[in-house]
């Protein structure tokens, strides 16, 4: 690996995999897409690396999503997720269920809103979110505002539905 790419990898790989994992629900797929993304960076080193990497990765997710429905894998993973710590008001609820509910809520968002949230969760600033998603910087705030509100509402609305295999 060349120096700059190695640096990119070191700096963003985990974050990218985590974002992809939250996006797809599939750790293997997340790793695979991350690998493909970095492979492409090697081929054409980007100037604005973080937005580029995440944008390419998200594109790959969308393309794959169009080709195949990975519903089954996602279901399996909902069950398999092993939360490490526990926090939040839903003390009585199983952690796995909580995660499943979050995923369900995320799925209810539009693709753009979901992606903006996941990028924000990886520490992106508005400028990078805008660059990654092709938004005007001024639109990022409203996008996040809407996305966060909808996520929370969807999550709360999902109360009582402990159906992991939805």
């Amino acid at each position: 690996m060349t120096g700059p790419i190695a640096d990119l990898f070191a700096e963003y790989h985990e974050s990218l995999v985590r974002m992809l994992y939250r996006r797809t629900g599939d750790r293997d797929r997340a790793e695979e897409i991350a690998q493909e993304t970095f492979a492409r960076a090697v081929a054409a080193p980007p100037r604005n690396p973080r937005p580029w990497l995440f944008a390419v990765a998200l594109n790959l997710v969308r393309e794959e999503g169009r080709r195949a429905v990975r519903q089954d894998r996602r279901l399996v993973l909902y069950k398999a997720e092993q939360p490490e710590s526990f926090e939040g008001p839903d003390e009585t609820m199983d952690r796995g269920d909580r995660i499943a509910r979050v995923r369900s809520a995320l799925d209810l968002l539009t693709e753009r809103d979901r992606e903006a949230l996941l990028l924000k969760a990886e520490g992106f600033n508005y400028e990078d979110i805008a660059a990654t998603l092709g938004l005007a910087r001024g639109a990022v705030g409203t996008t996040l505002s809407r996305a966060r509100r909808r996520l929370v509402e969807a999550y709360r609305a999902g109360e009582g539905q402990h159906d992991v295999a939805s």
Binding site: V17, V102, R103
Partner: peptide
């Protein structure tokens, strides 16, 4: 909520 989804 998002942070509850951790990388395995």
């Amino acid at each position: 909520l998002i942070e509850t989804i951790e990388l395995p």
